[in-house]
């Protein structure tokens, strides 16, 4: 059953990604002002959406873990945090590639960029905790709490960074033309790309979750084995 789900998700992800590539590079027209560079936007926004989605999952799964105590929720929040970090990195990278020719700089302390970067730091800390901590319930509960307060922090971060930027003089010459998707073909390409990235995300999440479940099972079996060895040694004596 699990194998079938995995294969189905993989097939759906591959097909939708091919469709998205076609839509982005062939179907959608080239943007008049920005030219070919604008096409990276069809990858940038879906990555951002998936990153935010995963940070949401980290918090919800963390809360469910604290409430219900079943390990699967902890594994889910761990897997989502890893993927969130991956896609958040992709957002920053694709954004920089776009910003260099359009804004003339790789990075600027614009409110959206700053917010994304702070989130990146936040979930980087979360993953460091997971990496340094052992695989036990104390760390799992701690990580759940961290995931919850991380998401609580997101609106405050957005507000504070926006206020911070409006007080500073604007560095940018032009505003980001993200909402300038006049052509309906552009909107279609964006929607297909969003769907494709969501499918890829679900597939990766499924794979990672299965790996973490396997790891938990192996851990359990090892413990059992150790107990049996102790019992066997006692019996021989």
């Amino acid at each position: 059953m699990k194998g079938a789900v995995s294969i189905a998700l993989a097939a759906a992800s591959c097909l939708s990604m091919i469709a998205a590539l076609f839509m982005v590079f062939v179907y959608a027209p080239t943007e008049a002002e920005q030219g070919i560079v604008q096409r990276i936007f069809y990858f940038h926004l879906p990555c951002a959406w998936v990153a935010f989605l995963s940070f949401g999952i980290v918090a919800v799964a963390g809360a469910l873990y604290l409430w219900l105590g079943h390990r699967i929720w902890d594994d889910l929040s761990y897997a989502a945090a890893e993927l969130g970090m991956l896609f958040c990195t992709l957002v920053l990278v694709t954004g920089s590639i776009w910003a260099k020719p359009i804004w003339g700089t790789w990075w600027t302390w614009d409110s959206r960029l700053t917010t994304t970067f702070i989130l990146w730091l936040l979930y980087g800390g979360y993953l460091l905790l997971r990496a340094f901590g052992e695989d036990n319930q104390e760390i799992a509960r701690y990580a759940a709490v961290l995931g919850i307060i991380g998401v609580l922090d997101v609106p405050v971060i957005i507000i504070s960074v926006r206020l911070w930027r409006t007080i500073h003089p604007a560095v940018l010459l032009t505003r980001q033309g993200e909402h300038g998707l006049q052509d309906p073909r552009m909107v279609a390409a964006l929607l297909v790309s969003l769907g494709a990235f969501t499918l890829v995300f679900v597939w990766l999440l499924w794979l990672r979750l299965s790996t973490l479940r396997l790891r938990a099972r192996i851990g359990g079996l090892r413990k059992e084995l150790a107990l049996l060895e102790v019992a066997g040694a006692g019996a021989r004596r």
């Binding site: 922090d153 971060i157 960074v161």
Partner: peptide
């Protein structure tokens, strides 16, 4: 809330600022 990490994780005392500072950024600004 987060200080208990220091006793639970290798290098937890180093980890605490890494966890707290990004969360504290709105208040810091």
């Amino acid at each position: 809330l987060l200080a208990t990490v220091s006793g639970r994780v290798r290098g937890g005392a180093m980890l605490l600022p890494v966890l707290v500072v990004p969360l504290f950024i709105p208040a810091l600004i």
